[in-house]
Amino acid sequence: MKAIPVFAHRGASNSCLENTFAAFKKAQSMGADGIELDIQISKDGILVVFHDLDLKRLAGKRRNVSDCSFKELQSYKLGKRFTRRFFGHSIESFQTVLDWANEQQMPLNIELKQSLLMNEAAFRQFLVAMQVPKNSHFSSFHERLLRIVKEVRPEMETAYIITKKFDWTTIKKPSFFDTIHAHKRYYKRHYLNNCEEAAMGIRFYGIVGNEPFLKNPHPAVKGWITDFPDKVQKAQLN
């Protein structure tokens, strides 16, 4: 059986600081088939690679990403509290990471975060000319952002990240998503059969590499999202 593509969650985030070039390059060296990353937007309309709405956890600053200019964001060092001043990483623009991914032909799972709703015009403008590696796609918890992608770039794959409120009957008539992304707790036969009947693919996140279903996945599965890309690849092949 052909192995299911493995996307490294925020890069190899168990080994390196999340959403940094160090994490992305480490994931590549571990054999990841693609990289999942998160996109926020700065005050001046620059898309940046960062997960949280604010800078407190990774930069120690009580500031929202969307309240800072890109220049200001780049001045902050990211990492653990007592080491980031000297060994910290910088916030990267999405364009910089995208250039690298295109050069490496590394597929991206681009998760669109809430702050993008604060500057839809800048997001739309970026989408118009954007080129992504083959087999890349957009994902989000926010329906509005996926609808924007479909309006501007209808050929792009979109994936809806579901919650417990999700109505599984809607997969038979989706209007803004092509694929479902779900936590591995939803790896249940009735959900998977619903996807298969609707010809709807599904990717699962929260995978660690010891799940029994990795060796014989349901036909509806089209991707794994994990902090441990090397372990998941190994589990699929053994």
Rank of each mutant, 00 (worst) to 15 (best):
H89L: 02
A12I: 12
P107E: 05
I41E: 08
P212S: 11
P219C: 01
T158L: 11
S75M: 09
S140G: 04
R63W: 08
Q114E: 15
A8E: 08
L73F: 03
R153F: 01
V6T: 03
I225A: 05
A12H: 08
S75V: 05
E72F: 05
I39T: 12
A121W: 01
K2V: 15
L98Q: 13
S115R: 02
T226Q: 05
A182F: 03
I41D: 08
N109A: 14
P219Q: 09
I148H: 10
W168C: 01
K165V: 09
A22L: 09
D178W: 07
I148S: 08
L37A: 04
R203M: 14
S115M: 02
E72W: 00
S15E: 15
E197Q: 15
L192P: 06
H137S: 11
R57Y: 08
F24H: 02
I4Q: 07
F87M: 00
V132K: 10
E143M: 12
K71S: 14
R144V: 12
S140F: 00
V128N: 00
K222D: 15
V208A: 14
L192K: 06
T169G: 02
K164W: 06
I225V: 15
H190D: 13
K215S: 13
K215I: 06
K172L: 10
C68Y: 06
N64R: 13
G88D: 00
K113H: 08
R84I: 00
E143V: 10
K215F: 01
L108V: 00
R57E: 12
L108G: 04
S93G: 15
F21P: 07
D227S: 09
V221W: 02
A159F: 04
R147N: 03
A199F: 07
E92W: 14
N135K: 14
S15D: 15
Y191M: 09
Q131P: 10
E120V: 15
Y76Q: 00
N238V: 11
V152R: 01
E197H: 11
G209A: 05
K2R: 14
I180P: 05
E18Y: 11
